[in-house]
């Protein structure tokens, strides 16, 4: 395996990470197990202070990767190193400082915030759990400070999440994640449930917070145009495997993997200047196969316009095509 890791100051190092979900297909008495290969051996690393983007279509395993990082799922195999410490275990078996250090913002703030609690309660919870308030300090002041960080007025702490708008809810979710003063945040499609006019504010706020608190982001989205504007490095996932990793500029100017090219040419665009960035139109054909039944050889071979015999037989390995630009394809 080539060194996809980069070399130093890595916060998160993921190696040969695998997550398989067994599914019982038939009835209670006659059990027949099949395996969904949600994540199937991925390698990447996230450097200190960067925003690492993970893109892919639905079912490509990007959220599963995120959930393994925060400990919702236990990996089937492989290693997850966070600042040199092995974190390949579910959250209940992790030490408190890890839970404090790694936080997540979910996609839909409507369901990630408890509608029966007011925002004060929601923001207090992480502060109490992690003993963030020293004796004698007011917890309310800290809550107001947190709301201030995400530019919400202090009286919002008495509101219920259902009475505020989607963008404001997501801001509360971000404030909750920041409450424990984490160094690493997983952002799982933080704006895909929101409108464009609200998205801008959330994203710009996240980018400022990253500088202010020296955060490292693992940013997950399916929106490539958004990714272009936020990420330093991008990995693209297809059927539980990473197809290409490159720096954001390189990724859009010189996409190597046919899947990346297909994805880029499928994006609807708004402005002429963007049209120049599109690779020669590769018409998208076929659909993403089921992760239960991954085709042999390269998993993209069912849709690839450039496939050759070797693609049907052999799964390509990740190679460094250009410095810091990795792709997993036989034909590059």
């Amino acid at each position: 395996m080539p060194d996809v890791m980069g070399t130093n100051n890595n916060v998160l190092v993921v190696e040969k990470l695998v997550k398989h979900f067994p599914i019982n297909l038939s009835g209670i008495f006659k059990k027949k197990w099949i395996v969904v290969k949600a994540v199937d051996g991925i390698n990447f690393s996230v450097k200190q202070g960067e925003c690492f983007g993970l893109v892919g279509e639905s079912g490509s395993g990007k959220s599963t990767t995120a959930y393994m990082t925060v400990g919702t799922y236990e990996p089937t195999s492989g290693s997850l190193l966070f600042k040199g410490e092995d974190i390949a275990r579910p959250a209940v078996k992790r030490s408190m400082h890890l839970k404090k250090d790694i936080q997540i913002v979910f996609q839909d703030p409507g369901s990630s915030l408890n509608p029966r609690r007011n925002i004060q309660n929601i923001l207090e919870m992480p502060l109490r759990v992690h003993h963030m308030i020293k004796k004698g300090n007011s917890i309310e002041k800290r809550v107001v400070d947190l709301l201030d960080v995400v530019e919400l007025p202090s009286h919002y702490r008495f509101k219920s999440p259902i009475t505020i708008g989607g963008g404001e809810r997501q801001m509360v979710a971000i404030a909750r994640a920041l409450a424990t003063e984490p160094s690493f945040m997983v952002l799982d499609e933080p704006t895909s449930a929101l409108d464009v006019s609200v998205q801008g504010k959330i994203i710009n706020k996240l980018m400022r917070l990253q500088k202010e608190f020296d955060l490292t982001y693992l940013f997950i989205t399916h929106d490539l145009s958004l990714m272009r504007n936020v990420a330093n490095r991008i990995a693209i996932m297809y059927l539980g495997k990473i197809a290409e990793i490159a720096s954001a500029t390189e990724f859009f100017q010189k996409p190597l993997h046919p899947y990346t090219q297909m994805l880029l040419s499928s994006i609807p665009i708004l402005f002429e200047e963007e049209a120049k960035l599109k690779p020669n139109k590769i018409h998208s054909v076929g659909e993403i196969p089921s992760p239960v039944d991954v085709p042999p050889g390269c998993s993209f071979n069912t849709r690839c316009p450039f496939k050759t015999d070797i693609c049907l037989a052999e799964d390509p390995v990740m190679r460094e095509i250009e410095p810091e630009h990795y792709a997993r394809c036989h034909n590059i």
Partner: peptide, 22 residues
């Protein structure tokens, strides 16, 4: 105008803060 400015572009360069309020 506000809507178009807040759409992220493939060519990068950031985007506007969006439209305040709802």
């Amino acid at each position: 105008q506000g809507l178009l400015a807040s759409v992220p572009r493939l060519s990068g360069g950031g985007f506007a803060e969006g439209i305040p309020g709802r």
